[in-house]
Computed example of a mutant assay.
Amino acid sequence: MSTPTIVMAVVLAAIFLLLGAAKVAAVPAMRQAAAHVGMTTTHYRLLGALEVAAAVGLLAGLRITALGAAAAVGLILLMAGAVVVHLRSGDPAARCLLAAVVGALAAAHLVLLASG
């Protein structure tokens, strides 16, 4: 596995461990974000659990490539959904930027995994 692939996996895992854990813990900022897009705290916690699971999958993917690829695909889908939810909530495109960028990073990681 190449150094860029490892770095990408670790960076993505760190991002999603942090954000996912904050959602699972329902910290005030995450509760406000959930309310802003019309989600319950329980639903947001579920999304956080998926993000944490994906982060673990990315790290496990350093040993088992198929797990890393599955985690990357899951994150791409989650981030695409996040963009849609933000746009449906009337947020400006700039508010969707983080989800779009992180989704693109997950896609880049998937390409790196596929290229060996």
Score class of each variant (00 low, 15 high):
V37M: 10
V27D: 04
G20D: 02
T40L: 11
A33G: 07
R31W: 05
G20W: 00
A29V: 14
A34V: 04
H36R: 12
R31T: 12
T40N: 10
A25N: 06
V24P: 01
R45T: 08
A34K: 03
G20L: 00
A35S: 10
G20M: 00
A26R: 08
A33R: 10
Q32V: 11
G20I: 03
L46C: 12
L46N: 14
I15P: 02
L18P: 00
A22W: 00
T40A: 13
A21W: 04
L46V: 15
T40K: 13
M39N: 11
Y44Q: 15
H43W: 15
Q32M: 12
G38L: 02
T40Q: 12
A26Y: 03
P28G: 05
H36T: 11
M30T: 11
V37K: 04
A35D: 09
T42Y: 08
A21N: 00
A33W: 09
T40D: 11
A33D: 08
A21S: 11
A29K: 13
M39E: 12
L17V: 06
L47Y: 12
L46Q: 13
G38I: 03
V24L: 07
L47A: 14
L19W: 05
T42V: 14
H36C: 00
I15E: 03
A29Q: 12
Y44H: 15
M30Y: 08
Y44T: 13
L17Y: 02
L17C: 02
L47N: 09
G38W: 05
M39V: 07
L46I: 15
H43E: 14
V27E: 06
V24C: 05
I15N: 04
A33K: 08
R45L: 09
H36F: 09
I15A: 11
A25K: 07
F16G: 01
A26F: 04
A22H: 00
A33Q: 11
G38F: 02
H43N: 14
K23P: 00
A34L: 06
A29T: 13
R31K: 13
T41E: 15
Q32E: 14
L46E: 14
A33N: 09
V37T: 10
L46M: 15
T42N: 11
A26H: 06
L46R: 14
R31F: 07
P28Y: 05
I15K: 04
V27Q: 07
A21G: 08
A26P: 04
A29R: 13
V37F: 08
R45E: 10
L47F: 14
F16I: 05
A29L: 11
L46Y: 14
V27R: 09
H43C: 10
V27A: 06
K23R: 06
M30K: 12
V37N: 05
H36E: 11
A35L: 05
T42P: 07
G20E: 00
R31Q: 14
G20C: 02
A26T: 07
F16A: 05
A22F: 01
L17K: 01
L17N: 00
A35V: 06
A22M: 08
Y44V: 10
K23W: 01
